[in-house]
Design a protein around this nucleic acid. Structure first.
Lengths: 349, 349
DNA sequence: ATGAAAGCGCTAACAA
DNA sequence: TTGTTAGCGCTTTCAT
């Protein structure tokens, strides 16, 4: 059921030029006199020519490559969720002529990130989705991609490089503020415990700083006088974590409000379950399987989710639209919704 | 950059048959001897042939039509959100060769639904997305579509017809249960007011019955002895609504917990704002603009959202995958997440 | 039941 | 600078 669609042949006829020339102006590939160019452009506008994606992709034959550059998804880490989103997105854009692959790095090892960056550049991708952990290096990767005219989309957090095609991530500050409200339930709190991950050797920016600020501002505005206790735990060592938690608990046995701003709240679950307290309220971030399990059991009261999988899926979609249809995203900065997850709405998340 | 992809010509050569025959077995369009059929099928499996979407769509040329059949989105109604989702989805699948249009009906007028159904069938669509309001008529539409081998996807609520390709909607019961938890904040409640829409002339099933059941079950399990008061209001008449609310309020001035299971909680906002009470908790459903405004102001405490736009977008995507790639959705029944919306996470919803 | 062949709209290499 | 032409992989009609 053709519907009198305008083709480049129509445009060629209208302008008295040939397919080839029309194609040249459509793709700005030069070798066209200014006059012909104008004529073609005018005709395109006038007759409302729209390229046929299928014909174009069929003829040009080549598939596009996009690569996703993220920290390696150690089992049960936040990045597993991103990787899953990638897999799903790859399935949708695959048949459209886009091949996706993933390059990972150790989020605690700058050198590994450098290696990964080179790997990405060497593969000469047509587009990149980047989760920037190391600020400076990510910035410079952005520069290099820009220089090679390779579009890139950021997920999770932003860098100061303005050349990105789009960004998909959560509002850091607002999520901390929200977190304050969920922890307090709008009531006043005497004392809250913030559990933090010990800062690491490399000078990464603390990705949770924005959340913490938002949280503290919430306290200042809604719970003046609330005492804030902080403790630092190792990112993974269960023994150290347990010990650190036991210590604060011994010092403040009446703590009823506990919060963590990264995705690792599941690390303190063993401690929490060893000291059950139905009055306690615990809020964390991100829907890792372990976190969700603790939420279902009631050990964690609320998780704030940001659908990392959806973030990368949308990032890849944005890249696909750009690569295939030459369509830039409506907005550069896309803040994803902050999901409030409780045991009652977690099941179909 | 061709990558040695297997084409039907390869298959034709391997089997000693012709392109035409291969195509015939791929599309089951008969006229092929069982023997040839087997050979081709075997070769396809063996060499991992995958059809080239672009070539296929280019050659066949015709675009597919899908129609969305929903209640007419009176301004500020739930269905506006669905219509928006449709618009967005149409943009994505448009370039892929799918044309979308919308047919609406008056959700309170059975006759108008009948007319709409005929309209849909007469347009001989390739796929239909249906929000079934009238059970029996929707069922019969499903039957008719099935008879014509037109795939259809359900959104919002289901019907008993098993022939649908997929369903996207919220868990009714669970959302009521969740609503109970959000209203009570896990504390005990003395008394709750349920505001309902007066039943209408036509014998529609009450779409909120499931939610109410879930809510009441939550009460039974977590707030035994909680008194439940119900009042009925007109779907739109502000005067009647105000009066009904004033009446219950006069009778129970100490009501601190108010809930509505449909999307019209904004209708009681004028009343609520005339009787401000910082202790009061109000929970409703759906992110209509009016509801969101009241949420921001604090008049409504929590909204439970179901992203109607995303529901229809996913429905259309499912249809597109089926029509274009012959891919059935992974799951028939897809329950969308129940979003908990507060004034602190509404802004980027 | 099967094969041959003419496109679908566009790209890209080559001629002119 | 511009025109011509041979495909891209598949669908579909018409012969055989």
């Amino acid at each position: 059921m053709k519907q009198g669609k305008i083709t480049i042949i129509d445009i060629a006829e209208k302008t008295g030029l040939s397919k080839g020339t029309v194609d040249r102006v459509i793709h700005n590939r030069g070798e066209v006199s200014a006059k012909s160019r104008e004529k073609v452009l005018k005709a395109i506008r006038e007759f409302g020519y729209e390229p046929n994606l299928h014909a174009s992709l069929l003829a040009s034959g080549h598939r596009k490559n996009v690569v996703l550059l993220i920290p390696s998804p150690a089992s049960g880490s936040f990045w597993t969720l991103s990787a899953e989103g990638m897999k799903k997105a790859a399935e949708t854009v695959g048949p459209l002529g886009i091949d996706c692959k993933t390059v990972t790095y150790d989020q605690y090892d700058l050198a590994s990130f450098r290696v990964a960056c080179d790997l990405v550049l060497d593969s000469h991708p047509d587009g990149v989705v980047l989760a920037p952990m190391f600020h400076y290096e990510s910035f410079s990767l952005g520069e290099r991609l820009h220089a090679e005219r390779i579009p890139f989309v950021l997920v999770d957090s932003k860098i100061e490089n303005k050349n990105y095609l789009a960004y998909f991530g959560m509002q850091e500050y607002a999520s901390g503020y929200l977190c304050g409200d969920q922890l307090s339930q709008g009531k006043t709190m005497e004392r809250v415990l913030i559990v933090r991950i010990s800062p690491d050797r490399d000078r990464q920016a603390d990705p949770t700083a924005g959340r913490r600020t938002g949280f503290l501002d919430y306290l200042a505005e809604h719970c003046p006088g609330c005492e804030v206790i902080q403790t630092f735990v190792h990112p993974s060592d269960p023994v150290q974590i347990r010990q650190a938690m036991e210590e604060v608990y011994a010092a403040h046995p009446d703590i009823r409000h506990i919060v963590m701003f990264n995705s690792r709240i599941h690390r303190i679950v063993p401690f929490l379950e060893a000291h059950p307290d139905p009055q306690r309220r615990v809020v964390g971030f991100d829907n890792l399987a372990e976190n969700m399990a603790a939420l279902r059991k009631g050990t964690i009261s609320v998780l704030i989710g940001q659908r990392p999988g959806e973030q990368v899926a949308r990032a890849i979609q944005a890249l696909a639209d750009y690569l295939l249809l030459d369509k830039k995203p409506a907005q550069k900065d896309n803040h994803v919704h902050m999901d409030i997850l409780t045991r009652y709405n977690i099941d179909y998340y």
